[in-house]
């Protein structure tokens, strides 16, 4: 394939994980509704959302998959994660049990997808005054670092930190995708990575050079 021009669009799948009461829904709704406050809510409401971005001149399509936080639906969790490029794991900073759940999910995601998936751990703040106890904040940050995740504090109510968090996640997913492309270019097996990971789609209809080799092969 030719060197990457500006003509490609990245499609990323991001799963949203968190216990029932931590407010995943309002976080993602805030993100997808905020800037373009029109048609970004699909008919599936907050369960499945899409967002189109333009990052450093590259187009990015995000598909955000909400997952059920209840334990009883976890038997099939892994089929939600399949082929994910990123995960946003949400907990409530006043509820350390919800943080424990995040740790379990991180373990599961790393086991299933290795280092190909970019993680964001998000502590949800309801009010600005809410503070961690000093010990907890150290624990949380060092944990996030230890598993290669970024940690953020966000508040959907105050619309704080959400945009930055997703932007950073997208940039990291693009880096991962580009690294994978380079690897492919170096002659690594294409079939191994074609099913999983980023899907790079050709852009607009382009004139196929006549007499060239078939582009589907």
């Amino acid at each position: 394939m030719a060197a990457t021009g500006g003509g490609k669009t990245y499609s990323f799948k991001v799963v949203l994980l968190g216990e029932g009461c931590v407010g995943k829904t309002s976080l993602v709704l805030r993100y997808c509704e905020n800037k373009f406050n029109d048609k970004h809510i699909t008919t599936l409401q907050a369960s499945f959302l899409t967002k189109k971005l333009n990052i450093t001149g590259r187009r990015v399509n995000l598909a955000i998959w909400d997952t059920a936080g209840q334990e009883r639906f976890h038997a099939l969790g892994p089929i939600y994660y399949r082929d994910s490029n990123g995960a946003v794991l949400v907990y409530d900073i006043t509820d350390m049990d919800s943080f424990q759940k995040v740790k379990n999910w991180v373990k599961e995601l790393r086991k299933m997808l290795g280092n190909d998936i970019c993680l964001c751990i998000v502590g949800k703040i309801l009010l600005l005054q809410t503070r961690f106890s000093g010990g907890a904040i150290v624990v949380v940050y060092s944990y996030a670092e230890s598993v290669g995740a970024k940690h953020y504090h966000t508040s959907a109510k105050l619309n704080k930190g959400i945009e930055e968090m997703f932007l950073d996640l997208c940039k990291r997913m693009m880096e991962t995708a580009q690294a994978e492309e380079r690897l492919k270019g170096n002659g690594a097996s294409q079939s191994a990575s074609s099913r999983r990971g980023v899907q790079i789609v050709d852009d607009e209809p382009q004139a196929t050079p006549t007499g060239g080799c078939c582009s589907s092969g």
Partner: peptide, 11 residues
């Protein structure tokens, strides 16, 4: 304002 998320959808 909260819309239906997966927590509600699956049950």
């Amino acid at each position: 304002t909260a819309a239906i998320g997966a927590d509600d959808l699956l049950p």
